[in-house]
Amino acid sequence: MKYQIFFLLLSLVVVSACAAPEQREITFPRATIQIGDIKREVQLADTPQLRERGLMFQQTADAGMLLLYPQPQLISLWMRNTDLALDVAFIDPLWRVIAIKPLHPLDETPVSVPTEALAALEMPRGWFQKHNIEVGEKLTLLP
């Protein structure tokens, strides 16, 4: 009887481990940006591992996140494991906003622009509109 209970508990642990997505806590470095008249600190995802994780599993997007790439490239984003309503501004190699698009919670449909970008700035839904940030606005990464 003890062995049956042990194997049952062991099976439950194995099944739980397989079913739970990777949610370990990751600490993102911070960067200060200026866009329009707004200066603020955001989370910085500047490595492949940090960009892959993005805002997954976070409870809020209030801090925002700058996904920064080493060189301009076609960027495609999705919302796997991200239960937040976001807007994303794609940033070109001259640090100008080239597009602002909505990202829907848990939607795995890729969102991209047809030209190369150097970065993507993810903010809570409506943030760009609230601050009158539009296509053509310049983003500056401050020291």
Rank of each mutant, 00 (worst) to 15 (best):
K39M: 02
M56P: 13
K2W: 07
Q73E: 07
D37V: 07
Y69G: 02
E52Y: 12
S16T: 13
T47N: 06
V135G: 10
L67R: 08
Q49W: 02
L141M: 14
L66W: 06
R96E: 14
L118E: 05
P114E: 02
W95M: 11
P21Y: 14
R51M: 05
W127G: 05
A85C: 03
M65L: 08
L68F: 04
G64M: 06
V97L: 01
L103K: 03
I35E: 01
T140A: 15
L77D: 00
L10G: 11
E116F: 03
L66Y: 01
F6E: 01
L8H: 09
R96L: 08
L86T: 11
V135M: 11
A17C: 10
Q58I: 07
L55A: 09
V111R: 12
L68H: 06
H131G: 00
E134H: 11
Q34Y: 04
L74A: 10
R80G: 09
A17P: 00
I26K: 08
L118I: 09
L121I: 12
E41P: 08
V97G: 03
Q71E: 13
F6K: 02
I75W: 10
P143W: 12
K101Y: 12
T60R: 06
P105I: 04
F6Y: 13
M79W: 13
L142F: 03
S112L: 03
T109R: 07
L118W: 11
I26G: 03
L55R: 05
V42Q: 10
L106F: 04
K101S: 06
N81T: 14
P114K: 01
I133S: 05
A89W: 02
Q71N: 09
A120E: 04
V135D: 04
P124H: 07
M65K: 02
